[in-house]
């Protein structure tokens, strides 16, 4: 038998919830020359094929893009232009036939930049 109340976390413990390494997908923006920008998507887990995603992104946003092999971050998708929110919407869209049940939770994606 257990008493539910006693299972509550220790209120005096330090809150260390944030530093637990979550496998975030990071969507970043970088400025190029002039008004031009780049969007990078980093941290997608192995189940996702960067190639297929890139293809979908390129078609959907009518932009060019490439996959970069980074020795620390693995495969990074790079797109031309600022598509951060659209990429976010795409990756979290459970309804689309592309992502479907593989859609990510919003909590697991971090958009950076201004």
């Amino acid at each position: 038998m257990s008493i539910e109340n006693l299972k509550v976390n220790d209120p005096f413990a330090d809150d260390v919830g944030d530093t637990q390494p979550k496998n975030y997908v990071h969507i970043r923006i970088q400025q190029r020359n002039g008004r031009k920008t780049l969007t990078t998507v980093q941290g997608l887990s192995k189940e996702y094929s960067p190639k297929a995603l890139l293809k979908a992104f390129k078609k959907e946003y009518a932009c060019n893009g490439t996959i970069i092999q980074d020795k620390d971050m693995g495969e990074v998708i790079q797109l031309q232009g600022d598509h951060r929110t659209k990429v976010m919407d795409f990756l979290t869209d459970k309804g689309s036939d592309k992502m479907g049940k593989y859609a990510l939770a919003k909590e697991n994606i971090k958009i950076h930049g201004f």
Binding site: T19, H26, R28, Q30, Q31, L38, T40, Q42, M73, V76
Partner: peptide, 28 residues
């Protein structure tokens, strides 16, 4: 090596993530 934010009004303490630059494309 964790960073902590300590509150001066209520005394609570929480750890914060270190700043990570992450992937940076070579531009220029």
């Amino acid at each position: 090596r964790l960073f902590f934010v300590t509150c001066n009004s209520c005394g609570s303490r929480r750890s914060v993530a270190a700043i990570k630059t992450g992937f940076q494309a070579t531009v220029g």
